[in-house]
Amino acid sequence: MDWGTIINNTLAGLLTPTTIAFALAALGLAMHFGFAGLLNFGIAGFMAIGAYGYAISVLTFGFPWWLGMIVGILGSIGFAILLGVPTLRLRGDYLAIVTIAAAEIARLLFLTTAFTDVTGSADGLFGYNKAGGFTDANPFPPGSYGFGPWTYNSETLWVITFGLGVLAICVWLLWALMRSPWGRVIKGIREDEDAIRALGKNVFAYKLQALIIGGVFGGMGGIIYAAFANVSPGVYVTSITFFIWTSLLLGGAATIFGPVIGAVIFWTLQAFLSNILPELSSSGILPVDGTQAATLRFVLVGIGLMLLVIYRPQGIFGDKREMTFVK
């Protein structure tokens, strides 16, 4: 086995545009679930709307990259309102059902051939980073940067820098909000919304605000992902939602840095497994073929998620008392 490559690829997973994108999405879920108690199973939908909003407005409407990204954000705000207004008055479980369905509907709308001109259908969209000027906005001259596993070309470095900037802003925003009286109301709603109503707070408005903020974080995650890879409907599937949930629960749902670090650990672990499992199978240690070995990591993710929820619901950084599933 080539341990050198395995370790190198694993360490590289620590800091990639993908890791940053999913950290943003997990941060959005922390707002939704960890702090406001909103069960959103459609975070992939928010990412898709952000990514497509950006790509379509550049490719179809000729917007510059920054305006395209703003459109992506507005799209995720719209999606949050669309989901929230009819469901937030209902019991929490309805939001879970509606979000999972809505995310699938969004994905299928992007996939259908009816709008191929705009969405690219199954091929997705590409070339928008160049067309919109995001690539040209790169302040780093061409070349190779970094060292060891973290060696990037100037384009990747630009996406990573931009992504880290966005992530830093979002982390600050969540932190600033959650230490404020606004955050106190949000946590109170998670505990018992009727009690909060009885104290004269407009619970519906607060829940909608939380849904929008988390949704924007998710949308930004989609945008950062799109700034690096192509926009493809195959990415925003329900299993992505569950990966993000796993990252969130790994780090700690009701924490600020938990989701970020959870995402880093999750994607590093993914990089490790996707490298080591095929190696194990080709060297005959695992009695499965290469393709099966690659799928095996998703099985392991599922098992990991279950163990996490059962034995450490508060995640790595959470306070055991603050986030448990058994109340």
Partner: peptide, 14 residues
């Protein structure tokens, strides 16, 4: 309806 996972003081301030 105590807000269980908030501190007593935060309950009050709410």
């Amino acid at each position: 309806k105590a807000l269980s996972l908030l501190t007593v003081l935060d309950n009050m301030k709410l």
